[in-house]
């Protein structure tokens, strides 16, 4: 079947038609990028994507403050037998934070501290019944936002988790906040 268009004698018109077709190869990906850019950006702000490794004992600047991972300890006191699923162990991760920029309400938004094992599985903070209350002045990441702090102030941040006993040895804490994502901190365990 022959189309009339194919026999257009005008050379310049044919050339431009060919150029337009080639331009589609660039324009279609570009259009997809423009349309999906804000979604992709939002996805990067909601998920931990690019890790920044922090060596044991070192502190790192994140969300305007300096974060140092102190310890991950297993809790045994105060627990009623049978209250937890078998094979589950409560652990508490402790951080020392030196507040840099005190605008925590914006900088620490969507703060989440998670524990990650060697295979990439992650645990979010959990409420463990029967656990003793933390000492005065110790807050979680989110409650620190409301507790506030001035520049140069040092605070202890603790989060509680319930994890399977067999992975406790390999867990590493990670910190992600909306203001810094897609980058997130991944701490090495102190030796």
């Amino acid at each position: 079947m022959t189309l009339a268009l194919d026999e257009t004698p005008d050379l310049s018109e044919r050339r431009w038609r060919r150029r337009s077709l080639w331009a589609l190869m660039l324009l279609i990906p570009l259009a997809l990028f423009v349309v999906s850019y804000s979604d992709v950006k939002e996805m990067g702000k909601s998920n931990n994507v690019v890790p920044i490794d922090v060596a044991a004992g070192q502190s790192a600047r994140y969300g305007g403050s300096d974060w140092q991972f102190i310890e991950l300890r297993t809790v045994t006191e105060g627990l009623k037998p049978g209250a937890l699923p078998k094979n589950a162990v409560p652990v508490i991760a402790r951080f020392m934070v030196e507040i840099g920029d005190p605008d925590l309400k914006n900088l620490w938004l969507m703060c989440s501290i998670r524990l990650v094992d060697a295979t990439g599985r992650s645990w979010s903070p959990a409420s463990v019944p029967g656990l003793p209350r933390p000492a005065e002045g110790i807050e979680t990441c989110t409650s620190t936002i409301f507790a506030g702090g001035s520049q140069g102030m040092r605070r202890v941040v603790e989060e509680t988790y319930l994890v399977p006993a067999n992975v406790v040895g390999e867990l590493r804490p990670t910190i992600g906040m909306r203001s810094e994502r897609p980058y997130y901190l991944r701490f090495a365990r102190p030796q």
Binding site: N87, A88, L162, V163, V167
Partner: peptide, 9 residues
């Protein structure tokens, strides 16, 4: 229910 990896409920 809050679910965690490795701890079936």
């Amino acid at each position: 229910p809050m679910l965690d990896p490795g701890m079936p409920r």
